[in-house]
């Protein structure tokens, strides 16, 4: 394997996929393969799918309860450092927020009349729906482009609605939600034709608890929409 910047090529790169997925192997080989993958969409997809399989294999390991007191020992190690950093971070955010509000309040009041009208309209809509808030996220395609949008509504009931317009694929997408505490839930199926489709459903979890909405289907590109930082942040 050469250590210079010459392109490794697809065949040689794919020989190294398993080691790349497992994060092992000589550093220079991996660097050469990653250089090739950075400029090769086919090998990039290949590595993604092989890495997915390798990661999923780990979940097959048999569960086993740790020795008694394990949880306490872990929590003792987590304990001393988190709160100070968190408190300091929150304090800095709060101070910055108050300062920004104080400086900008008058100006904002003068120049944001349109925004205030929009906010009033939004509040009236939520009151009519008996809801608390609504939020939207873009859905990312494997190439990083926007594949669609997901709207999530917190109310009674809460619901999500998805619109897609990406590629020219056809078939069913499995729609799944990952929650911020790590649970995964299958919501249903979104059918696409010529890459387009829309679908919605009620959800029995708070919108604030959503970490990610994921769409996967045989022969269809993997799509996902992140809902912000996980807890704990």
């Amino acid at each position: 394997m050469n250590g210079d910047t010459a392109d490794l090529g697809c065949d040689a790169t794919r020989e190294l996929m398993a080691e790349l997925a497992a994060g092992v192997g000589p550093a220079e080989d991996r660097a050469a393969a990653l250089r090739h993958i950075a400029g090769c969409a086919d090998c990039h997809r290949e590595l993604e799918s092989i890495s997915f399989v390798a990661d999923e294999l780990l979940s097959l390991a048999p569960e086993q309860e740790p020795p008694s007191g394990f949880e306490d020992r872990v929590l003792a190690r987590l304990g001393p450092r988190a709160p100070r950093r968190l408190l300091w971070r929150r304090t800095r955010v709060a101070v910055a927020l108050v300062a920004a509000i104080a400086v900008g309040a008058v100006t904002v009041w003068q120049v944001t009349s349109d925004d205030r009208r929009l906010a009033a309209s939004y509040r009236r809509t939520l009151q009519t729906l008996n809801g608390r808030y609504m939020t939207a996220r873009t859905i990312a395609a494997p190439d990083g482009s926007m594949a669609g949008r997901v709207v999530a509504y917190q109310g009674t009931p809460s619901w999500i609605f998805i619109t897609l317009a990406y590629g020219a694929g056809a078939g069913p997408y499995e729609v799944r939600i990952t929650t911020r505490d790590g649970r995964e839930e299958r919501l249903g199926v979104l059918d696409v034709q010529n890459g387009s489709g829309s679908w919605g459903t009620t959800i029995d979890m708070p919108v604030a608890g959503i970490a990610e909405v994921r769409l996967s289907g045989t022969g269809l590109p993997y799509l996902s929409a992140g809902f912000g930082a996980r807890r704990p942040a």
């Binding site: 997915f52 990661d55 999923e56 780990l58 979940s59 990312a140 990952t178 505490d181 790590g182 995964e184 970490a211 990610e212 996902s224 992140g226 996980r230």
Partner: peptide, 8 residues
């Protein structure tokens, strides 16, 4: 989250 689930 795009790289997989929390347990993974």
């Amino acid at each position: 989250p795009r790289r997989g689930r929390v347990p993974t």
